[in-house]
């Protein structure tokens, strides 16, 4: 019996409240996501933007509880009206697919190398929707056509390794869409691809998202990717949201010094001839976070307050919020 995938009354598909994730092993106890909250409206694209170790992937994976056994989740996660933190493994399995599906950076992780693409997509549909294998196989063909795989009928019988990188990525997207999810989670799906293929996949995802009205959470380290696909962006640093807002506003007028630094250190067309302005230092050690603002040790605009008091994510204008004691200071010089 499939789970109800309709969004809650207010049109919200996912709601995360004060999410924290810690990885606990015998040797270490590390807080990788620290007090993250957000809501995602149906049909909306949210980009989690951050560098390695910022907690963006863990945040996204928490929505389906796709985390290693050492993870301890705190806070509240609602996906399509279901409390994910309280669900049994069985219930979670029924959530994965029809309600929320995921695409990965490396498509080979999603496919079993010994079965054909068509078989795997069809069987996913059969197990979730209980329709006949014949009908499921027909749907699989439609899906491959939907993701614009050329000569789709022939590709149904291909094994994953027989496809090129771009086609494999498309096939994985087809697999993710096989149960008509209301929420798509994408984890750097284009990072490993060549430039000319990356743009194809990004545009495909953008089009599918729009046509199918799927809400999407897109994890990326690349501002360029965020600019292409996002409605809203949440910039993560050291396991926390440091800035959220509509993508165009955040890019045009970043309010958090980290966002400013990230934009400055990204090489643009116009950068040539001038030295880059990098953010000094390196990413924070999650096991040894500063008591105040996590970005303070690298921040050029910090005050003593930043070292002592942790800033909370507070609204600065309609739809925008920033976790910084001196946001305007940084925002004044875009």
């Amino acid at each position: 019996m499939p789970l109800d995938a309709t969004p809650a009354r207010n049109g919200t598909i996912a709601e995360v409240n004060d999410l924290s994730v810690r990885f606990v092993t015998r040797d270490r106890d590390v807080l990788v996501v620290d007090g993250v909250s957000f809501t995602l409206a149906a049909g909306e694209v949210l980009c989690l933007l951050g560098e390695s170790g910022s907690g963006k992937t863990v945040t996204m994976r928490s929505l389906l509880r796709l985390l290693p056994p050492s993870a301890r989740i705190g806070g509240r996660i609602d996906v399509a009206g279901h409390d994910v933190t309280a669900m049994s493994d069985r219930q979670l399995e029924r959530l994965r697919g029809p309600v929320a599906a995921m695409v990965f950076q490396e498509p080979m992780t999603a496919f079993d190398p010994v079965f054909t693409i068509g078989t795997q997509i069809a069987e996913t549909i059969v197990s979730h929707e209980g329709i006949s294998y014949r009908a499921a196989r027909a749907r699989a063909l439609e899906l491959l056509e939907l993701v614009q795989i050329p000569s789709a009928a022939r590709r149904l019988d291909a094994y994953p390794h027989e496809l090129s990188g771009g086609l494999r990525q498309r096939a994985m997207i087809a697999l993710a869409l096989s149960c008509r999810p209301a929420l798509l989670l994408a984890d750097e799906p284009t990072t490993a691809l060549d430039a000319t293929v990356q743009i194809q996949i990004l545009l495909l995802l953008r089009q599918l998202q729009r046509d199918l009205g799927m809400a999407t959470i897109f994890v990326t380290h690349d501002i360029g990717v965020a600019c292409e696909v996002a409605d809203r962006v949440a910039v993560m640093y050291g396991g926390r949201f440091v800035e959220t807002g509509p993508i165009d506003q955040v890019i045009a007028q970043p309010a958090h010094p980290y966002t400013v630094g990230l934009l400055n250190s990204t090489v643009h067309e116009i950068s040539r001839g001038a030295p880059l302005v990098p953010i000094p230092g390196g990413p924070p050690d999650l096991a040894d976070m500063p008591p105040g603002c996590s970005f303070a040790p690298r921040c050029s605009a910090k005050s003593t307050r930043c070292d002592e008091i942790r800033p909370v994510l507070a609204p600065i204008s309609a739809g925008r919020a920033v976790a910084c004691h001196h946001p305007t200071l940084a925002g004044a010089k875009p």
Partner: peptide, 9 residues
């Protein structure tokens, strides 16, 4: 990472 890439460049 981008912020580190700029340093190395």
């Amino acid at each position: 990472d981008k912020s580190v890439q700029a340093q190395v460049l």
